[in-house]
Design a binder for these strands. Sequence first.
DNA 1: ATGGGTGCAAACCATTTGCATAGGA
DNA 2: TCCTATGCAAATGGTTTGCACCCAT
Lengths: 150, 150
Amino acid sequence: MEQLSKHDLSVMMAEFENACRKADLKVTHQRLEIYRELARAKDHPSAEMLYNRIIKRLPTISLDTVYRTLATFEKHRLITRVQTVESQARFEAETVKHHHAVCTQCGTITDFTWESFDEAQVPEEVTGWGKVVKRNATLEGICNKCARKS
Amino acid sequence: MEQLSKHDLSVMMAEFENACRKADLKVTHQRLEIYRELARAKDHPSAEMLYNRIIKRLPTISLDTVYRTLATFEKHRLITRVQTVESQARFEAETVKHHHAVCTQCGTITDFTWESFDEAQVPEEVTGWGKVVKRNATLEGICNKCARKS
DNA sequence: ATGGGTGCAAACCATTTGCATAGGA
DNA sequence: TCCTATGCAAATGGTTTGCACCCAT
């Protein structure tokens, strides 16, 4: 469940810089730190969570920049916005296809791959509806850690 | 794709009143109108969309009440909160198990059933993660109506 | 040098909450 | 009657925006 990412951090950073140049995005240290923090994060942090981590290394960064930068990254498909029940949107650097298991008790979001779902034929009704570009499965339940506690 | 609901409006309203009594919720006309509007709606309206429809019949109702009432209904499992990409949460009266196809162009959310997905075995990683209580599939794509336009 | 990126503060928008009143049980 | 639900207004919290300055290119 952990080893979803194909790349280690340094490779991801290199690819990130290339992608920025290709997209005409300036490689500022704010952007580098935001991306690095997100690439290294395993917990689908929110903008504010990221901000609180980055500010330790970059004390002058503003929360606004984090928001703006995440939006920019998303627009250029460098990162993905996660669909959750909460209003507070959360982000991840992982772009490999995967799905989410949400623990309704502790709120943790865990990634998992599900090839048979990815390749499953969609129902006829959907074929008639239009062209499916992306599919995502969200599971809700109680993770073992929480189950043990109660 | 349309005939997901098992019940016509009058049956739903009757069941709704019963459910309220069982849950010790007072049957106010605000609640009746909010539920009726939602039960009749096919477009997963937001709180504000509902409010704008209801106010025509109930000019004194407040948006706060709509929010509060939807939250109450949700708590008592009379309605379901839909997971969408947008920040504005949207609701539906439908509680039959189903999934969503979201058109990224017009934003329409269309329901569909997918039995083979509902019954599919989840990956081993998930079995090890915890106990799955609910599962949902979200498809993103372009609906035929939008495809024709462009 | 120059135009995009950033920090700051203020604005925004969906949603929530405190309080006094009103209306269902 | 009594307590819950409602309306109003103000607060909240996440996110966005206008503006002047700064810094990668």
